[in-house]
Write a protein that binds this DNA or RNA. Structure first.
Lengths: 243, 243
DNA sequence: CAGTGGTCTAGACCACGAA
DNA sequence: TCGTGGTCTAGACCACTGT
């Protein structure tokens, strides 16, 4: 298997530092002639490295050694009942807002009737040029209807939650469902990862005292750059445990 | 992109049930001529479906529609502070126990000195012949030293936790760290999944009131067959929220 | 052995990105 | 525009599985 041999050689070059992080690899045509293989075979080798998270491919620009990225920590703390991501140096967060009406799928997820007006917030965070996280938050407009939050350092939509609180919505309960799965084609493209790289997918439902769903969030986080941390303290001992 | 079109069509056939679970797909040559593409293009389409977990490939035997497996729910409930998996019909759990001494890595994880005697419990659950979950629990023997738990319906080692409580160990705090990643070769073999299928990896640390780590657990769960659910209630409203 | 999937070539052509 | 990666063909040959 020539493509494995080539992948092994390039992996060695990357891990030994001879090809530096962020650096562009030689053009595929160049590598193909160096290794005396044809285009498809060389590309197969690069696919292996991309699947391992060592290489990023950009159509028209080149193939790059993937930079080690800061770990994004998604914290789930029972004591504080808060959700935050550790602020990361160089992290930029972009927010877009759009208004839509609930279709079949959304009406089921949010437990509202079809056609219910919703607001969708999409958060995409970057470290430099590389995407780092993707968050989609749906809020029924009859629950709250505020504008685009200031682009903040919260890549996972915490400021929408803060906005809900500020308009008097009381969140009583939050349910988070976490799965590991391959990204959809769209997610892989948005996050700039290979379709074979796992993502940590988190679906978060926030319910108010009346049992109404006030926020439904869909987080897609690159598996190898994300850690979800959950801390629970046994109720009776919570005071002693914090010393 | 012809391979995507083909993948979409085959996905539709699988999801609609026209191609049944476990059934062999037509030979690649047959499919290639049906879709009027060549071998590499058809195989590319199958790669997509394999990455999505819809198809399993076996060299020399054929390509098969992957059988759906029961979902394992890993529940993290702040109110109850308990961890359990929903009992699954046909689920069988095997437990093995072994004694060892902490090496470099384990001494760091468990915050004990090298050479500290430990007990390792390995839980492997099956549904029929197919492996379903893998749990490795380490307990320092100076914390507790009980025998092999009765093989139970708890595939994730909950009975070790129960055993700790029964000998008077008070767990004050539990930290769980969840990541999505590809399996190691060993894990892929044990769980019977492809190396490209993501797993949900959970590292759970239980600490007692004195800050001593009393249990360190390493769970490896197949991503597309596991869902970790976390429920939190905002403290002040916990009574009202339960009605 | 026959049937199946796995790898590779040589080359054409398309699509994207930066200058 | 030009250099880059992305897709596809037509066909050869290899490797695994079961009879």
């Amino acid at each position: 298997m020539r493509y494995q041999v080539i992948a092994d050689d390039l992996r060695r070059l990357i891990e030994s530092g001879e090809l530096e992080a962020g650096q562009r690899l030689p053009a595929e045509a160049e590598l193909a002639s160096k290794y005396m293989v044809t285009n498809p075979t060389l590309r197969r080798a690069l696919d292996v490295l991309q699947a391992e998270g060592l290489v990023e491919k950009y159509h028209g620009r080149g193939n790059f050694v993937r930079k080690p990225m800061p770990l994004l920590t998604y914290s789930i703390d029972a004591a504080a009942a808060c959700h935050m991501a550790r602020s990361t140096p160089g992290l930029q967060v972009g927010v877009t807002m759009s208004r839509l009406e609930a279709d079949e799928a959304l009406s089921a997820l949010l437990q509202v009737e079809r056609g219910t007006p919703l607001t969708l917030y999409v958060y995409i965070s970057h470290v430099g040029a590389a995407p780092h996280s993707l968050a989609r938050l749906y809020v029924p407009r009859d629950v709250a209807d505020f504008g685009v939050p200031r682009s903040s350092s919260a890549p996972l939509g915490d400021d929408v939650r803060a906005g809900l609180t500020s308009v008097g919505v009381r969140v009583a309960s939050t349910v988070e469902r976490l799965t590991a799965r391959p990204p959809t084609a769209e997610e892989a493209h948005t996050l700039g990862i290979a379709a074979s790289r796992p993502v940590l997918s988190i679906q978060r439902t926030a319910t108010d005292i009346a049992g109404r769903i006030v926020e439904w969030t869909f987080l897609t986080l690159p598996g190898d750059r994300t850690e979800a941390v959950f801390t629970s303290r046994t109720a009776k001992n919570s005071l002693e445990a914090t010393r």
